[in-house]
């Protein structure tokens, strides 16, 4: 076995993508899952012990919050470099990785000088090839610094969660005020979607940070992302580039967001958004 892949849930899309990536590094892939509750340092130690025992060429995980965290622990314990959010691998001595910077707006090519190659795979950078995998369950090792979570508290609100929504209607500076979001909320509700916002909006105090879409906010992957009055700064695009389709509504025909959009409407969102809502109601009544 040449490549070890850490998998939590084999059905998970990101896990599938990580396995596909792993296969591009080397065909000989072993997927392992660690039993018991999550404890990042302990899981990191587990991977380190696996490396000591099996001497793989590489250890790979999905670039999810957990994947990055566990591999970082493993990297720290092994004192090896880690390429987080990798999208491509080219063999060599040393091999070259291409990894994501600026939430996806920039790529880095780097030489990975490690006796074992530690990498996490950027979400949605690789298409899963659907090949089935056998999962090996491993018991966790101990680590002196390991801390496990003591409890979990559920998400507070009802309504559609931003991460899972199929439709996200998002407002930026152009909305103008907290009250201005009423039309955004209306459209989101009509489409059964969630409301998002840009960082300027959170900074202005119009919406809570939980609504913020962006590099330092929530990353969304809806079927359609409707960006209203959002200019298209890279840090925002980092949050919504997972969307299958992007509709941008902006008064400024030169706004950067139009470069990333599938559909565009040039106009004042205060007129366009209510018009869309009215049109939806009309279409449904018919």
């Amino acid at each position: 076995m040449s490549v070890l892949v850490l998998v939590e849930d084999p059905a998970d899309e990101l896990a599938q993508q990580a396995l596909t990536f792993a296969r591009s590094v080397d065909g000989d892939v072993a997927a392992i899952s660690i039993s018991g509750d999550y404890a990042p340092a302990a899981w990191g130690q587990t991977l380190a012990d696996q490396v000591a025992a099996r001497a793989p060429q590489a250890v790979i995980a999905a670039g999810s919050e957990r994947g990055n965290e566990v591999l970082a622990h493993a990297a720290a314990i092994l004192d090896l470099p880690l390429s987080a959010n990798t999208i491509a691998f080219a063999a060599g001595s040393p091999p070259t990785v291409t990894r994501v910077r600026w939430g996806g707006s920039l790529l880095e090519q780097a030489l990975l000088h490690g006796s074992t190659l530690l990498m996490t795979v950027a979400p949605h950078a690789v298409a899963a090839d659907g090949v089935a995998v056998e999962l090996e369950v491993v018991s966790p090792s101990q680590h002196a610094l390991a801390v496990a979570p003591t409890k979990r508290v559920g998400a507070a609100s009802g309504g559609v969660s931003l991460e899972d929504a199929d439709v996200v209607v998002s407002g930026g500076r152009g909305v103008g005020s907290a009250d201005g979001f009423a039309i955004i909320e209306e459209l989101a509700e009509l489409l059964g979607g969630a409301v998002g916002c840009s960082r300027a909006v959170t900074s202005a105090g119009w919406r809570p940070h939980t609504d913020q879409v962006g590099q330092t906010g929530t990353k969304v992957a809806p079927d359609i992302y409707i960006a209203c009055g959002i200019s298209g700064a890279t840090q925002h695009m980092a949050g919504c580039k997972g969307a299958k389709k992007l509709l941008a509504i902006n008064e400024d025909g030169e706004a950067s967001i139009f470069a990333h959009a599938d559909y565009g409407v040039i106009g004042n969102l205060h007129e366009v958004v209510p018009a869309i809502a009215a049109e939806i109601r009309k279409a449904r009544a018919a």
């Binding site: 500076r173 300027a200 900074s203 202005a204 105090g205 119009w206 200019s231 700064a233 030169e254």
Partner: peptide
């Protein structure tokens, strides 16, 4: 609070909308 982005942008990006100055002559 809605003026805070403007104050931060005017200081850090040299214009109140936070647009990159590099585009100023576009």
């Amino acid at each position: 609070s809605e003026a805070e982005p403007m104050l931060r942008d005017i200081e850090r990006s040299s214009n109140p909308w936070g647009h990159p100055q590099g585009q100023r002559a576009d």
